[in-house]
Every structure is written in structure tokens, then in C-alpha cells.
Amino acid sequence: MGNDTLIRKENRKAALFRLAPVMGLVFLFAVFLILAIIKDINIPYSFKNIINQSVVVVVAATGAVFIYTLGSFDISLGASLCVSALIGAMAYNVTGSVLVMLLVCVGVAVGISLVSSVLASVFNLPVFVTTIAMLSLLSALVLVLIGANGTGDVIQVPAAAVRGINNVWFKLIVMVLYLAFCIFLFDFMKLGRKEKFQGGNPVCAKLTGLNGKKLAIAAFAIAGIGVGLGAFLTITYAPTLSRNTASSVGMDIIISIVFGGMPVSGGARSKIYSAAIGAVSMTLLNQIMLTLSLDSGVGQMVKAMIFILVVYISMSNHKGNILPR
């Protein structure tokens, strides 16, 4: 076989592996459709559910891709979302303005992200451990906010206030706009290229004059916008907020990003759309588990196996003779 043929074959193989998360999504979609037909499920309604259930994670996780591209990690995004949503709701109750609520949600989330990143940058702290500390602080802040609000164990926005925007089209618009913004920044602006460089080789990046700290701050700020939008969408979907609001979002973001084919070490192979693919895939997987009515424990085991299988397929092309770290 000639060299050209071999090269084409290898390229096709590499492309197939790169497509694995998308193929995983398509596969899960197909399984879901088949099950839905067999079990006579309301398919259009299910599609609406999938959007409702995945949009918050899609938005928050897409912003988080900027952090992960740098090879960093943020485990406090769920707690940040909760705090942003609580303060946003309190702002609405004071002003009666949905716009103010949106601005406060985004502002608080960006503020929290900046505190994490500035702390880490100024004091040379490992980003991940800083976010662990932030997770504890934010969890405590949630209880303080709920207590300070004086309305029992919840903070509520009147359902009527958000009824008009609690629809799939609004959420899709927000999601698509933010995705477009992130894709533009990541794939068409210098910021994205710099971040990939920084994540791939921090030493070379520094030697070429890139300021890693500024990039980290920018990444966290963009992630903060996503978290703020996620907080706003959470309020529109469920305007009663408690200490457990968004409690699973933190881990859902990590799972979605990985499930969508994003390399955990960041770098040049990072993909901005991996969060969207991963979040929708996880939602489809949850729908499938629910339809199959598996026991909670067994269902979780099945989810774990599917997760590792899909990630293995999407990342199995990149192997060396040393174990990955």
C-alpha cells in the first residue's frame, strides 16, 4: 500500500475518533428514539424536556471550556451558580425587574470567578485547590443568604414574573447566542488560540510572551458569564431556590465536558462545542435510564459503563508509551 493511501487511512481513522463524541450523541439519540417509539413516549414533549434539562449545563459548561483549555479545573461552578441565582432572586424581589435579575446573576457569577482567578493568579495558587476552597466558602454563603432573606428555607421569585420567558424558544436563543459568542472567541479570536497554546505548553507560551495569569482571568470571566446565564435560566425554570439548587451542576459540568470529547489537560485539541455535545448526551442517557426504569444503583452502574466507553472511544486515538496524567 502506498504512503499516500496509508496517510489517508490514518487521517480517516483520526477523524473518526474525533467524531466519536458526536457519534455517541447520535447513537444515544437513536436509542432514545427507538425506546420512545416502543414505549409510546410523547417524543415532541421529550425533546422539550431535553432542552430544558440540558440548557443550564450547556451554557455553564461551555464557558468552563475556557478554563479547561488552560489545563485548569473548577469544581466550584455549581456553588457559584447557586449563589448567583440566590442573589439574583433577591435582587428581583427588591427591584421587580427581570433585567436587573439577569444582570445581577451574571455580575455575581463573574465576580466570584474573578475572585478565584485573581486569588490564584496574584498569590500563585494552584487553581484547582483555590476552587475547592471557594466551594466551601460558597456553600457556607448559600446558608447565610437563605437565612438573611428571612423567608424560611427558600428564596422565591414569583412564578408570574418569569412565566413569559420560561419557554423553550427563549432558552434556545440564550443558549445559541452564548454558544455563538464562545465559538467566536474560541475559534476565531486570538484569545482562543492563546488559551490553547497556554494549555498545551505553558513554558513555550510564557517564552513567547503570553501572560498566563491574564489568560486565566479572562477564562474565568467568560466562564462566569456562562454560570450567570445558567443561574438566570435556573430561576426561570424553577423560581423557588433552596440550598440544594444546582447542587449537581458542578459535577454535571465536568462530566459533560469530558463526555463531549474535551481533553482534560486542555491544549490544542480542546473543542468549544464539547460541552454542548456532552450535556445533551448526558441528558439523553438519563432519559434512557428513566425509560428503562432501572433500579437507582443499577442505573448508575450502567451510566458509568456507558460514560467510560464513550470517552474511551473518543480519546483512544491519542496514546503514547506512558500512562496519561
Binding site: I41, N42, N52, P239, T240, L241, S242, A246
Partner: peptide, 15 residues
């Protein structure tokens, strides 16, 4: 939380 409850109800309705 309330969002999870709303999602679960939507899932039941779809099913």
C-alpha cells in the same frame, strides 16, 4: 431542588 422536580414531572408527562 425545585428544578429537578420540574424536570422529573416533565419526564413523567413525556412517559
Amino acid at each position: 431542588d425545585a428544578a429537578a422536580e420540574a424536570s422529573a414531572i416533565d419526564n413523567f408527562i413525556a412517559n
